[in-house]
């Protein structure tokens, strides 16, 4: 199968410090790819390169190629703003926009790029809240503040918001690390269903989570991609000794 997103020789820096070293990795369409590794190994930096949020940080830059279909999304000719409409992102902490209603949060990606038609917005809001498995809980209070929801609901709201602009790829940066086990289970279930709609790359600290939800897993260590394999393979018969030590918890 030809990958939807094909990363080739990606390196990234914060000033003089290199955070990613020559990463090559292909993401298949409608799959879930998990990125695991210890803190500071560059896994968040990796997905932040893919929607070019990396370069919003002062002094940060990157090198390499990444093909999304026919387009090299890391080339200087590509406008990061329009790229981010194709590659959405969900963050570590739920971050509904301040004093915006649930409805406005989901619609914000459209309204702020000039789509004002009420009928279109209504449809998009309902469709994506349903996709994010939040519709039944909020359909009677769409005008309430997004911040009035619980943490888990807020995170699903953020997922609906990211889906509303119709991205091809959804990046998730430890989306459940601030949530309780029940909310986490709901999000994991959701990720499993969202595969039909969108291709997912998820960073996680939690190896069980990677094993439960992903099709392929990449193990990062100190900015290197150590191993990238189908999840069941990586967790049962890792090829690299460092991977084995990490997944068995015998890591330094």
């Amino acid at each position: 199968m030809r990958p939807l997103l094909d990363v080739q020789n990606l390196s990234a820096w914060f000033g003089k410090q290199q955070a990613l070293k020559n990463i090559s990795l292909g993401v298949n369409p409608n799959s879930v790819t998990a990125i695991i590794g210890p803190s500071g190994c560059g896994k968040s930096t990796f997905i932040r390169c893919l929607n070019r949020l990396h370069e919003e940080i002062a002094g940060a830059f990157l090198q390499g190629n990444a093909w999304l279909e026919e387009e090299n999304i890391l080339s200087a000719q590509v406008d990061p703003v329009s790229l981010r409409r194709k590659i959405g992102m969900v963050f570590q902490r739920p971050n509904p926009f301040p004093s915006m209603s649930i409805y406005d949060n989901v619609a914000s990606g459209l309204t702020l790029s000039g789509i004002k038609r009420k009928s279109v917005l209504n449809e998009v809001v309902e469709k994506n809240l349903k996709l994010a498995a939040l519709w039944d809980e909020v359909k009677d209070k769409l005008s309430q503040a997004g911040s009035s929801l619980s943490g888990g609901q807020q995170q699903r709201l953020c997922i609906a918001r990211a889906l509303a602009i119709g991205p091809k790829v959804l990046l998730m940066d430890e989306p459940t690390s601030a949530l309780d086990p029940i909310s986490t289970a709901k999000i994991e279930e959701l990720i499993n269903e969202l595969k039909q709609e969108v291709t997912i790359v998820i960073v996680t600290h939690n190896m069980q989570q990677a094993a439960r939800i992903s099709d392929k897993t990449a193990f990062f260590l100190l900015g290197d991609l150590v191993e990238f394999a189908p999840t069941s393979e990586l967790f049962t018969s890792p090829k690299d000794e460092r991977t084995e030590r990490y997944i068995t918890g015998r890591f330094g």
Partner: peptide
Amino acid sequence: LIPAHVREAGLGLGIPRWK
């Protein structure tokens, strides 16, 4: 007082920084 990741969430939706 508004955390940086809220701004990034906005940028992540493909909205220009000034907006």
